[in-house]
Nucleic acid binder design. Structure first.
Length: 273
DNA sequence: AACAAGACCTGCATGC
DNA sequence: TGCATGCAGGTCTTGT
């Protein structure tokens, strides 16, 4: 579910609400996430203070005292929500962290593609899923010439390249489609056939789009919610994603959908070449 | 080595 | 109503 803007929205909300709180008690109700929750997870988290909430690409990093980090990835369907009204637990509330202000942090993930891991801070950078990640689009290294060079070296489509978190981190299926629309490039274009100017347009569109989506608190299609269970607002600004058959906002033409590798791509055949 | 496709898992919408 | 199918924001593994 969440791509970089959604994870950033959750980070900002949780930082405000849980920074400085101590975890008093932890219930692990279902360990079966993508990486099984370790049997010592609850004991590792209980008693720790949440010192800060950071983000790396789509990973939430909850900094704890004693130099530990609670890493949360929300997969496709995960939510990490602060609950202060004592509402009953729901199906798929897999982890509940009780806080010293009476609120709870609940990790809810129906599809269980997410993960929840605690590591010593010193081991964070070497942890394989993080170590593999490329810079995100806000990194100064990510610019037109850099993307052009990477694209020239690839025989994949530009969409596949941008979705690859080891090439650039943080984009998923929604924002890749939107970036390519803004850059006027079809998702199926071979990366190596892009010109330097198209690479430049894509490289500029990535941080601009993500920033805009963050300002709107992310995109809520069905189940994404921020750290307070609120919807984002960027879905109203999508130009192609999920708009098959609807009119292009620029030219009025019909948005098309194609499928490759079990993923949908959306584009305007007139505006994107 | 690079790449495309499959696998993982549940829930929902749709159509018969 | 029930059942089958297709589809979903991600990432890891498999096989070519």
């Amino acid at each position: 579910m969440p791509e970089l803007p959604e994870v950033e929205t959750i980070r900002r909300g949780l930082r405000r609400l849980v920074r400085g709180r101590r975890v008093t008690r932890v219930e692990v109700r279902d360990r079966r996430l993508r990486i099984p929750v370790r049997t010592d997870f609850a004991a590792d988290l209980a008693g720790r203070v949440i010192v800060d909430v950071d983000r790396r690409a789509k990973y939430l990093l909850l900094r704890l005292d004693a130099d530990r980090v609670w890493i949360v990835h929300l997969g496709m369907s995960g939510k990490l929500i602060r609950v202060a009204d004592g509402r009953p637990l729901a199906r798929h509330d897999h982890i509940v962290a009780h806080l010293d202000d009476g609120a709870e942090l609940r990790l809810h993930d129906p599809r269980r593609f997410g993960l929840s891991v605690i590591l010593p801070a010193t081991e964070l950078a070497a942890w394989p899923p993080l170590r593999r990640l490329a810079p995100d689009p806000f990194d100064p290294r990510f610019d037109g010439p850099w993307l052009y060079a990477r694209a020239r070296a690839s025989r994949r489509t530009i969409k596949d390249l941008l979705m690859d978190q080891t090439e650039v981190a943080g984009l998923g299926n929604i924002y890749v489609n939107e970036v390519l629309y803004r850059a006027g490039v079809r998702p199926g274009r071979r990366a190596c056939r892009l010109g330097a100017a198209a690479a430049e347009r894509i490289a500029r569109a990535c941080p601009a789009l993500l920033e805009e989506a963050i300002r709107w608190c992310g995109t809520s299609l069905s189940d994404y919610r921020d750290g307070e269970d609120r919807e984002g607002g960027f879905q109203a600004h999508l130009c192609v994603y999920g708009r098959t058959g609807e009119a292009c906002r620029a030219c009025g033409g019909q948005i098309r959908r194609t499928r490759a590798g079990n993923r949908s791509s959306f584009y305007c055949p007139r505006c994107q070449k």
